[in-house]
Simulated assay, not measured.
Amino acid sequence: MRFRPQRPESPSDVALAQPPALPSTMSAAVIDRTGDAAELHLATIDTPAPILSEVLVRVVAAGVNPIDAKTRSGSGVSGAIGSFPTALGFDFSGVVVKSPYEAHAFPVGTEVFGMAGFPRTGGTYAEYVTVPSLSLARKPASLSHVEAAGVPLAALTAWGLVVETALAHEGQRILIHAGSGGVGHFAVQFASYFGAQVIATGSARNADWLRELGARTVIDHATERFEDQVSDVDVVIDLVGNVMDDTGTRSLRVLRPGGLLIEVPTGAWPGFHEAATAEGFRATSFKVVPDGGTLATVARLLESGAVQVYVDRVFGLDEAADAHRELERGHTRGKLVLRVSDD
């Protein structure tokens, strides 16, 4: 059988196959310098251009995380910001508008969520963002973009803490501080899913909710000393550190011999490793890995209903400063999200 080449595409066919023209500029919530929440403001900046294996995504919603506020204030990852103005943000959910090539795993029009490479690239508080292909996953169909935007950084952090570092399993006892926060509410669910006995600290108003998520014991941090309530814990996941009432140091009192302390907030307890080692405990810090494969696994758990994301409040892109103020009050249940554009 002879090979018959296909008819060459006409100019009109080629035009129809191309993605729509993209704007050269976009709206973004940026900072011109580090400082308080008032530094965040709307501006018009250049639309980013993807290179090599990067994907360009139209952002529908962006998650707001403590690392964003820390970076804005001058700590966090602010030292790696190359120039100002810069858009903040790691989390996003949106739609692919430009792929590296036609047969790419995330073609134009695919609904995706993931983590941007901020601050090496622009952040997600913007209408468009470039994202490494390996940091993407398909958005769960059962989640809205607003819900999906609250997942990536918090859930990937929690997965790394609970599954990859604590190695959660049946019969294990895990204490999770700040269980009702963005990372915490995922950590409680993952630990429970893998069979661990979960003890969570939080406020009284979140106690019933934390039990619904899988915590067997909930300790009100405002009225109870957790070290008076529990002991012989296998793992402490400390999402607070010593910035509040020496939570990190006190955590060493509840670990079993040889137990593991995972200290998450950067700079919240500089001497944690030495202190833990001196008392015979294991200890490690942790940094999130923006892995799309792991995020796809989390997506399947979300689709099945085994894990849920809780979005506390939604702000407009022009309300990014208000979102940071709300985050810094420290009473957020689950996640705060910015709605950037229409679905």
Rank of each mutant, 00 (worst) to 15 (best):
E127Y: 06
L40H: 10
L336S: 06
F315G: 12
L301K: 13
F90E: 13
R339K: 13
V151L: 04
W159A: 02
G122H: 04
V95T: 15
L252G: 08
D228W: 00
A154M: 11
S78I: 14
D68M: 10
V218A: 06
T47S: 12
D318L: 12
G171T: 11
K139W: 00
A207V: 00
V163T: 12
G171Q: 08
L22K: 07
P119A: 08
T217Y: 02
A43G: 09
R58Y: 03
R173S: 08
P152T: 01
V97C: 06
R256F: 00
A158E: 09
P270L: 03
R33Q: 10
T223G: 11
A37Y: 06
T277N: 12
A299V: 13
F226W: 07
F118S: 12
E326V: 15
G184S: 10
V218G: 09
T25I: 01
V235L: 10
N206R: 13
V96K: 04
V64T: 05
M244L: 12
F272A: 01
P152A: 13
A103C: 07
I237K: 00
I176L: 09
F118R: 00
P140I: 00
R339T: 14
R250Y: 01
F194Y: 12
V146L: 05
T247D: 04
L260S: 07
L156S: 06
V96C: 02
A200P: 13
L153S: 05
S203K: 14
L301F: 09
F90L: 14
A276Y: 00
H324L: 05
V14P: 10
L252E: 02
Q6P: 15
D36I: 06
V183E: 04
P270A: 01
G202I: 01
T110E: 11
I51C: 09
M244P: 00
A204R: 14
T247F: 07
V57M: 13
G63C: 08
P119E: 09
P132M: 02
D322C: 00
E224S: 10
G74H: 05
V230L: 10
D318F: 05
D228N: 12
K70S: 11
L213P: 04
S304Y: 06
G114R: 12
T44Q: 15
Y310A: 15
A283Q: 00
V162A: 05
R300M: 07
I51G: 09
S24P: 01
R253C: 02
